[in-house]
């Protein structure tokens, strides 16, 4: 399988603090890769460099052979990258449907057709009955799903999910996992996810990359990675059990 996203040795420092140091990872076309690591490991900074919020100090990000590092976020969206925010950013005064329509209008300029598409995406995430509610009135789990719906509506080739399972109940997590697995299998959507909820990481990821102090310390099969002593020590704690 060819690689859709190739992140090659990217680094980012904030006033001397090296948040990410020469991190590399690849996401194969149609694959699901989990990016894990303790708090402050640099996962979100990595995401922000891929999504265009920050320009990497060094290294490159390539999507399907095309360099995208340093591009503006809107151009990265045009290139085919969709993302969610760890701290959700709903358009609070707009209804759930209008939120998703903003995403759908990216590829569909006709508002009526965009509306139908947005409804289909909301339906898929089990949010259709909430469509007329202002996003500001939704619960946190609902807002997380709305983030996903909005990003999905732009029809990305790769979806970057930043802790969308956090705060969900186990049954809700399983539902979300099922949605992503379905999108991945039926539509071939490629996914890169940051996740703390190991239940979701283990269920979804075909490959896991572990980041610690901004550096990649392990990668590979999820089952193998969580047994890696280095990972157990610095991420899960020496006594941790999965």
């Amino acid at each position: 399988m060819s690689d859709l996203l190739v992140v090659d040795g990217i680094s980012k420092s904030f006033r001397g603090l090296r948040a990410v140091s020469r991190a590399s990872l690849t996401v194969p076309k149609g694959g699901i890769v989990g990016l894990i690591g303790p708090n402050g490991a640099g996962k979100t900074t990595c995401f922000n460099m891929i999504a265009g919020v920050y320009k990497p100090d060094e290294g490159s990000v390539t999507l399907d052979g095309r360099r995208i590092d340093g591009l503006r976020p809107d151009l990265i969206c045009h290139a085919g990258v969709g993302r969610t925010f760890q701290i959700v950013k709903p358009f609070k005064e707009l209804t759930a449907l209008d939120n998703v329509m903003v995403g759908a209008l990216h590829t569909e300029s006709d508002t009526r057709r965009a509306k139908r598409e947005a409804e289909a995406v909301l339906d898929r995430l089990g949010m259709l009955e909430k469509r007329n509610q202002p996003a500001g009135q939704l619960t946190l789990p609902e807002r997380k799903r709305l983030e996903v719906a909005r990003a999905l509506a732009t029809k990305p080739r790769i979806l970057l999910l930043d802790e969308v399972m956090a705060g969900l109940r186990p049954t809700e997590t399983d539902q979300m996992v099922a949605v992503f697995r379905d999108l991945n299998q039926r539509e071939g959507l490629t996914i890169l996810l940051i996740e703390h909820v190991m239940r979701a990481v283990m269920a979804l990821s075909q490959q896991v990359v572990v980041l610690h102090h901004g550096e990649v310390i392990a990668r590979g099969d999820p089952q193998a990675v969580v047994r890696d002593p280095a990972v157990l020590e610095c991420y899960l704690g020496e006594e941790a059990e999965i």
């Binding site: 999504a51 809107d74 969206c77 925010f85 950013k89 358009f91 005064e93 990216h106 732009t154």
Partner: peptide, 14 residues
């Protein structure tokens, strides 16, 4: 309206 509500999120949506 998206820009009014959250510019960063708006930009992410292209």
């Amino acid at each position: 309206q998206a820009i009014r509500e959250d510019q960063e999120a708006a930009q992410t949506l292209g």
